[in-house]
Design a protein around this nucleic acid. Sequence first.
RNA 1: AGCGGGAUGGGAUAGCCAGGAGAUUCCGCCGGGCUCAUAACCCGGAGACCGGACGUUCAAAUCGUCCUCCCGCUACCA
Length: 714
Amino acid sequence: MHEEFPTESPAVVTCGLPYANGDLHVGHLRTYVSGDAYARALDRLGQNVAFVSGSDMHGTPIAVNAAEAGVDPESFALEYHEQYEETFPEFNVEFDNYGHTHDGTNAEMTRSFVRSWIDGDHVFEKEIEVAWDAETDQPLPDRFVEGTCPYCGERARGDECDEGCQRHLEPGEIEDPVSTITGNPAEYRTRPHKFLRLSDFQEYLNEFIDRLEGTDNAQNQPREWIEGELQDLCITRDMEWGIDYPGSEASETPREGGETAESEEELVLYVWVDAPIEYVSSSKQYTEAVGADTYDWEAVWKNHGTETEPDGGEIVHVIGHDIIQHHTVFWPAMLRGAGFNEPRAVMACGFVNLDGEAFSTSRNRAVWADDYVESGLHPDLYRYHIVTGSEFTADVDFSWDGLQERVNNELVGTLGNFLYRSLLFAERNYDGTPDAEVSEEVEAEIEAAMDDFRTAVNDYRVRGLGHTPVELAKFGNEYIQRHEPWKLTDDEPERAAEVIRDCVQLVKAIAVLMEPVLPGKAETLWAQLGEDDSVHDADLGAALSAPPAGFEDPVELFEQIEDDRVAGLNRQLEERIEAADDGGEKADSDEADGEETDDAVADLEPIADDRVSFEAFKELDIRVGEVLSAEPIEGADKLAKLEVDIGLETRQIVAGIKQLHDLESLSGTRIVVVANLEENELFGVESDGMLLAAGEEADLLTTHGDAEPGTKIR
RNA sequence: AGCGGGAUGGGAUAGCCAGGAGAUUCCGCCGGGCUCAUAACCCGGAGACCGGACGUUCAAAUCGUCCUCCCGCUACCA
């Protein structure tokens, strides 16, 4: 339906805005790296493209967190904004423009959107009930209310009975509403709010979704909504922090964070209104910086719909799949309502897991962007790992072990090795590129790789962008092995020169092809080839043009990640999780103390949120054991040394039960032992296993029947 | 609950949209080769009844129906 890339029209690639409310981790970075790689790839194809994003500065969570931190929301959010701006280049994510939603460009652009909707009669007012903290005179958006579910009686959030019956709750339904911010009881007030009549766009969206390109999930997921009945979107909030609703004349500038509310007339736009408009604003800022001759934002975004005027360019949104509906329902309707061009494609990626489990920022179970930067590993290694780790729409696993494996095998073994052996051979024997013609076979192979590259771009597969150069290197290794130029240099020097000429051409092609995913490394390689411009300016066709005749000593482009380094990074992560878990439990119990809960229940730790797989459980070798002897350990307050018969062998186990049990009477007691725990030394005494006991009093687990020592427990 | 996605050799993955010789790549395993190259590279081999059951078809991992298990989304929560 759409013309293939590259097209004559300018394009924009955007990334979902990071919400300026917390640090970035390597999960967030998947979107930005993918968007960056995709924009670079378009650029390689010769597409006129801008890559833009910005920080999302508004919304309740920022307002609340800023208040808690005792600062105004603007400086709170700006701090994160500045942090993000510094973080992205660390991962070679280079936006042409990176703005934020609170700047003047966006405020103005947002209000012009809203005015267009009003002019087009797409906005109406409706009275709705909103939860209110009467004591602090503060509105409570739904997540900030808790109470009792009217259907099942379970504790529930204001918008959803999340722990009980899963039912969606309308405002006003929840019983005994309480503010989660202050703990004050909440009341409901009737307030007038503005709504965007999405139903006006129902028919349009039905057509739009059929021509939308990108990943399948972006086209499929919103169908339920679009083909059903669209609810109108409430576009205002009772807040101070945000972009003022442009209804009143006095509200033409973004509100300063510290200012207090004039009256209860305060209405700002819902963050999801001004957030995506930042895509437009950021593009505009780019044009303002480089000039409309270089990049014309209006040619991309404005849809004049006439034959003489441009009809808009190629808009590609790269997002996480949690915000598909916003980009395929709300956003196209917003654009349409304001007379703007529609997105050509939405690329929605899966989440990033950490060692197979979800990130948990509250448990600090995360690899933060800073952690990666501090690891000293090159950003391109992360980029490659995350881009090629799975299909874009699928979840991808990040782990230091996985990173090491991919880097050592694919980037070092296959890619780096081919580049280095080729250039080294060429430099040693010919001081650079040998004087010979490129063979037809190699030329065809490079052309095929270029085709793969083009196809990947047009199919929105960033993963393919990562694979293509490595596959070409794999071919290169086979090629050089097959021709064994090291055997030819003496007897058939001309033949040897031909083979190496082929290899150098392959190297150059690889440099061009790897630029999107491995931009830093590609540039280094480009310089090694003796090129005097930047690979970032080279187009795809450069893969077939002749490399410079002479170049210097090559250097290995990638180096192995050593086991020690991975072990250190893993240890660092584990220690932090443990520390956070300890802290988390303390915090939980503090909370319990403050609330009027049943004492007996309040003393118990909550059930762990994170489920372990059956596979993980099976890794534990738990056995019945019989205590043969138990004696205190000198100098230790709590520790005792036990000899335990676990059937196959006798184990020495150290346990913290000295004061809690009559050690002498323990002999003959059946206990339960984790047999395959790693060995440890406590107070200088070897401990090989761990006995299981309940609670602070170390109530020993035993068997109900008479299972023999050594019996496996499952 | 509805909708969307997933289930492929020991692990991780591709193929499925546009059905066709018992299936890709990486790791691991077994055997061989090479020595230009970062203990890297190359070649060969073992190993999967493609979650289960029906069905369509000359032909199904690929299409349809049902089932099981996982995951995501479900709007005033960024």
